[in-house]
Write a protein that binds this DNA or RNA. Structure first.
Length: 798
RNA sequence: GGGAGUUUAGCUCAGUUGGUAGAGUACCUGCCUUACAAGCAGAGGGUCAUAGGUUCGAGUCCUAUAACUCCCACCA
């Protein structure tokens, strides 16, 4: 019935079949309970890597499981295709910089690029057997999503949760864009502590100050010492002269000046770091900007104007040395906040920006986090830990090009902010104008040129998926969504922002459950990087050479939330499993040709395997309900190998030789084989959708009456079995194992005949299945003796 | 400095409510057994990180310690 299995032909064949037969589609009109998944839209910023395949496969297992548990599954798929990561990809692909061309030209290039990549992405995910419903797909740059993103902005603005303010913003001088706290990454960077002479005004005495950023001397506004620091108490209130620049600044006291650190005296520049900002606000210090948006020195820096930060630093150190103002240099390694995308140390700039309020609602967000089920549960700690530490509102304006425009104008006359009207969305303020004049009568408007942070858009994926503002009934039905799957790195961004947005918009949770997956590591403690992600691990290669089913098998072996090391071993195990499933099915089905399923009086060992199956399925389901896909698979796999090595070996004699064992004995084995294989394949279908479909189509489809195995539902095998059947059947396996051990230890073939087998204390059940034991062990005679149970078996050979 | 995770066989990991330590893999020994040699059978291999405690009984519960990993804070 089954011949050879060739995944290279079969896998694409079934992928096409599923699309054509709408196997994975969400049914809007179904009465079934809905299970909805807020799929992560992959960022279009380069290639899909093995980590994507890993975590998307895991989410797919859940989607397939829920479908087979009778849910109406909404499994959408989006692409996050705007914003800085995409721009950088486009700049790299074309070898250009966005600011070198017109906005339109750059946007065109971006659109072309994302289109190309998304096609590739989609093909790759389909090739991995991801069962998303492509009717429910979206792109964050599409007009539909732009509209929703702007609607989100308007809603929050009206609710007072978004504000426009000129204040400190975190700035990346490399990308020339403001970024959010969540986009910072702490990095240990080697640096130099430069000890400088700050002469006391009108004195030969100097104050020694250590700094890593001498290039900011021109922005120095004061010097702080700790009020408890006796060494400097005589200097407090006096003025010191900033080296090289010659202007005077006061010596002030503040607790934040650490006696232990450096020399205990610190120069405050606006802005070298967050502490400078703190002091500026606390003491209302003057603001002096020494660095331009592009990371070069301003006119304030005098002769260093126009130089890059690093260059200026080197030159200024040389000049300090030359002027005998440098006392010494210490090499240090210190933590520096950098932009996660480019690794450039951040700067603080005063900018007019749009912000979403976060700080004032922290308690609420913590509460919301508590109401969500996190799998694994400890990932909740990571969420609350982050929310607890948030100390900045979320800056959502970006000085970039390829993004969702901020739908706002400013009156050229009075400066009033004019936000777009909802009916006009999506709006590009650079192209259109407000529909009515400003209150002041002016019709002259300055459009906002900034675009949104991508997270402003991707934080409403539940709203996008649930058709917010498009289908109110559906929205009500779908919110909160059932599940958000994502990796642990974006808990602080995507999860957090999404929770905040859903609360602000509708006072709901975005989803009931979060399933957090780990990372794929190249090796222990070694993340997969572009250079490491060689062809051996590229998804294309793995899918083409190892098959999608085997790749998915590997993805199933991971533990929830835990990082996994890329392992060739697991691929081998997967290949073995797939092969074994094929062979076992082929064998079993060869005895089921023309079989008509009907209730049959079952022999004990057939009851046993069915009872074992049902028990395994209960464990399997319990694991899946906790999103423990790996443990569920292990449970299933263990059963399957037991089915092959013990049950088939027992049953095949009856299947082969009805003339000896009787037709009804064969029918009993057929019943068990038919049902166990069928139900087991359904469970495997969650992980290995291709090969199971091949077998289903070749045989079981006629009986199940569903177009695809993926439209069937998991079911127990509904027969009554004696309570102690598992225990008794396992005991039989134990006896069989002892026969095998004996033969193995004596270097005998397993088919060697046993003259007499003595079984002691195993009870009456053994007698009832004597024919099975005799057959599988090739035993001529069994002698039963009384005594303690599990005493053992004596064997004699002629 | 704050938080979290991990520590069980050479390796990768299970171990549900406390009750004689498990699997896969590797190594070794056999077996061409009428599905599968990408298979089958079997053997060896563990002070469950350490030290205390609770208990009749602890890999499991409690306390402390150590090592590794991650998140956050630390940026003069």
């Amino acid at each position: 019935m089954l011949d050879k299995y060739n995944f290279r032909e079969s896998e694409p064949k079934w992928e096409k079949f599923w699309q054509e037969n709408k196997v994975n589609e969400f049914d809007k009109n179904s009465k079934k309970e809905i299970f909805s998944i807020d799929t992560p839209p992959p960022t279009v910023s380069g290639k899909i890597h093995i980590g994507h395949i890993f975590s998307y496969s895991q989410a797919d297992f859940v989607a397939r499981y829920k479908r087979m548990r009778g849910y109406n599954v909404l499994y959408p798929f989006g692409f996050d295709d705007n914003g800085l990561p995409t721009e950088r990809l486009v700049e790299k692909e074309y070898g250009v910089r966005a600011h070198e061309m017109s906005r339109e030209e750059f946007r065109d290039k971006c659109m072309q690029t994302v289109e190309k990549y998304e096609k590739e992405f989609k093909e790759l995910f389909i090739r991995d057997g991801i069962s998303a419903d492509w009717n429910h797909s979206y792109n964050t740059i599409s007009p539909r999503v732009q509209k929703l993103s702007q609607k989100s902005f308007l809603d929050l603005y009206k609710k007072g949760k978004i504000y426009y303010a000129e204040k400190d913003a975190i700035w990346c001088p490399e990308c020339q864009v403001s970024i959010a706290q969540a986009e910072l990454e702490s990095k240990d960077i080697a640096s130099t502590f430069n000890h400088l002479k700050f002469y006391i005004s009108g004195s030969e005495e100097y104050l020694e100050i250590a700094t890593t950023r001498p290039e900011l001397l021109s922005a120095c506004v004061c010097v702080f010492v700790n009020p408890e620091d006796k060494r400097y108490s005589h200097l407090v209130g006096k003025k010191v002269i900033v080296p090289l620049y010659g202007f005077e600044v006061p010596v002030l006291t503040d607790e934040k000046a650490d006696i232990e650190k450096g020399t205990g005296a610190v120069m405050c520049c606006t802005f070298g770091d967050e502490t400078d900002l703190y002091w500026q606000q606390k003491y209302n210090l003057p603001i002096k900007e020494a660095i331009t948006d592009g990371g070069r020195m301003t006119a304030l820096a005098g002769k260093y104007e126009g130089k890059k930060i690093k260059v200026a630093r080197e030159e200024i150190i040389a000049d300090l040395k030359e002027n005998n103002l440098l006392i010494k240099q210490d090499q240090i390694v210190h933590a520096v906040s950098t932009h996660e995308r480019c690794g450039t140390p951040m700067e603080i700039k005063i900018k007019k920006q749009w912000f979403v309020k976060l700080v004032e609602e922290k308690e609420q967000f913590l509460k919301n986090g508590k109401e969500i089920n996190w799998y694994p549960s400890f990932m909740h700690a990571r969420y609350s830990n982050w929310v607890d530490n948030v100390d900045r509102d979320w800056c959502i304006s970006r000085q970039r090009y390829f993004g969702v425009p901020i739908p706002v104008w400013y009156c050229a006359h009075c400066g009033k902010i004019i936000v777009a009207e909802e009916k006009d969305l999506p709006v590009n303020p650079l192209v259109s104008k407000p529909s009515s004049p400003c209150e002041c009568g002016s019709t002259d408007f300055i459009p906002e040129t900034d675009v949104f942070d991508t997270w402003q858009t991707s934080s409403i994926t539940p709203q996008i998926n649930a058709m917010w503002g498009e289908d109110d009934e559906m929205y009500k039905k779908l919110m909160p969504m059932s599940l958000r799957p994502n990796a642990h790195d974006i808990i602080r961004t995507w999860d957090f922002y999404t929770i905040a947005k859903s609360y602000y918009h509708s006072n709901t949770l975005p989803w009931k459950n979060v399933m957090v997956s780990g990372f794929v590591m190249a090796d222990k403690n070694e993340k997969i990087s572009k250079s490491k992600s060689n062809s051996k691990m590229s998804p294309e290669t793995l899918l083409a050479e190892r098959s999608a089913d085997v790749t998915r098998y590997w993805a199933s072996t991971g533990s929830l939330g835990r990082d996994i090391i890329f392992s060739d071993e697991e691929f081998k195990n997967g290949a073995k499993l797939v092969n074994k499933i094929w062979n076992a099915s082929k064998f079993v089905l060869s005895f089921l040709e023309g079989y008509e399923p009907k209730p049959t009086r079952l022999l004990p060992m057939d009851e046993w395997i069915i009872a074992k199956f049902n028990q395994m399925q209960r464990y399997f389901i319990a694991y899946f309900e906790k999103y423990e896909i790996g443990l569920a698979m292990a449970e299933l796999e263990r059963f399957f190998w037991n089915f092959c090595d013990n049950y088939i070996e027992i049953a095949k004699n009856r299947l082969y030789k009805p003339e000896i064992y009787g037709e009804s004995s064969k029918a009993s084995a057929q019943f068990a084989c038919f049902n166990v294989l069928k139900e087991m394949l359904k469970m495997f279908a969650i992980y290995l959708p291709h090969i199971t479909e091949e077998i289903y189509q070749a045989y079981f489809r006629t009986f199940e009456n569903k177009v695809s195995i993926h439209n069937t539902e998991l079911a127990e095998i509904d027969i009554m079995t004696p309570e102690d059947i598992i225990e008794n059947g396992d005991a039989v396996c134990e006896i069989v194992a002892q026969i095998r051990r004996y033969k193995s230890e004596n270097n005998l073939s397993l088919k060697e005949e046993v003259e007499r087998l003595t079984v002691q204390g195993y009870g009456d059940f053994i007698k009832r299945v004597e024919y099975d034991i005799k057959a599988v062990g090739n035993v001529k005679e069994i002698v039963y003796t009384a005594g303690d149970r599990f005493v053992g078996i004596k064997m004699e050979r002629k």
